[in-house]
């Protein structure tokens, strides 16, 4: 491919521009413009209803002295380091089971795992509040049936984040769908060959499925991480960040600053810090997963 002639490359470039032109227009108008506005606001004190006042790096300085911000960063990091791997692990496992050709009725199961994503967020949040009740909630009653005295979940400083990890797992139907679609791409002949070599299900999974699922895993992990950074509706409705800010996540605090405290400039600075952190994480992931390898 590298030996293509220059003029071919030029036509391809022209074609490519045609193909991505709607996106280019969209990104300039609906994304670049707001992003650049927010970059400018991040150097300002901006209350939306008044004109922005330039304050230099003050917002960024304030951020790193703001205990709530650091707490939000910690909580978000907790979810990324603990919640994302657990969710990813569960989603991959479930998808591999669902993809097993020897099992029947997998269609019904797929729908079951997908149902949670169909429930409107407001309703889903109320359902979780109900399920996580310390005394009467179904989760603690289930645990009680096994002789385990369940924790206070969303009303406990220690258990509120694990409670949100449960919610995260519950809504991983999207990821399962994508994993399943990715699994479809893996040829049966590979498994048949491996089976002939005597590799069992577990071995096949480790040495065929997971490596070939790489680009799908990358996509899901990246969207999951971005999802955690933007996680807002659930903590907002269920806990509003409490108790003791133990569920104050990044986007929730950003939202509070933007729309409840009138600190659009400060919120914009938060957005840019988020952008830089998320970029760094994603670049590292791309390196680890050797993102560009597939192309060459």
């Amino acid at each position: 491919m590298k030996k293509r002639k220059m003029n071919l490359k030029r036509t391809e470039f022209k074609h490519a521009m045609l193909f991505i032109s709607p996106w280019i227009f969209g990104v300039i108008v609906f994304t670049l413009y707001p992003i650049l506005s927010s970059l400018y606001y991040s150097f300002c004190e901006y209350k939306v209803v008044q004109d922005p006042i330039f304050v230099g790096l003050q917002n960024y300085k304030d951020l790193f002295a703001d205990k709530t911000f650091l707490k939000a960063l910690y909580n978000t990091g907790y979810m990324i380091l603990i919640g994302v791997p657990i969710t990813t692990f569960t989603a991959i496992w479930v998808s591999i089971l669902l993809n097993n050709k020897k099992l029947k009725y997998t269609g019904v199961f797929r729908i079951m795992f997908f149902i949670p994503t169909l429930i409107p967020t407001v309703v889903a949040c109320l359902l979780w509040v109900w399920m996580l009740q310390p005394d009467s909630g179904i989760i603690n009653r289930l645990l009680g049936a096994f002789g385990i005295s369940g924790p206070g979940w969303i009303s406990s400083v220690t258990w509120s984040k694990p409670a949100f990890i449960l919610i995260m797992i519950w809504t991983c139907g999207n990821a399962i769908i994508i994993y399943l679609a990715g699994l479809q791409d893996i040829s049966d002949s590979l498994y048949e060959a491996a089976a002939l070599d005597g590799a069992g299900f577990f071995r096949q999974t480790i040495s065929i499925t997971i490596p070939l699922l790489k680009s799908t895993i990358l996509y899901n992990v990246v969207t999951l991480i971005i999802g955690v950074f933007q996680w807002f509706a659930e903590p907002y409705i269920i806990t509003s960040g409490g108790p003791d800010n133990s569920t104050m996540f990044y986007a929730l605090y950003l939202y509070q600053n933007a729309f409840q405290f009138f600190k659009m400039g400060y919120a914009s600075a938060m957005a840019w810090v988020l952008l830089i952190i998320a970029m760094a994480i994603i670049l590292v992931l791309f390196k680890v997963f050797k993102f560009n390898e597939v192309d060459s």
Binding site: V157, P243, D244, N245, F261, F262
Partner: peptide
Amino acid sequence: SVSAELSTSFQAFRESVIYS
């Protein structure tokens, strides 16, 4: 002029007094 944030921060502090 800062009552919204003050109120939120004070509640969070009250919770940290109770729980932590």
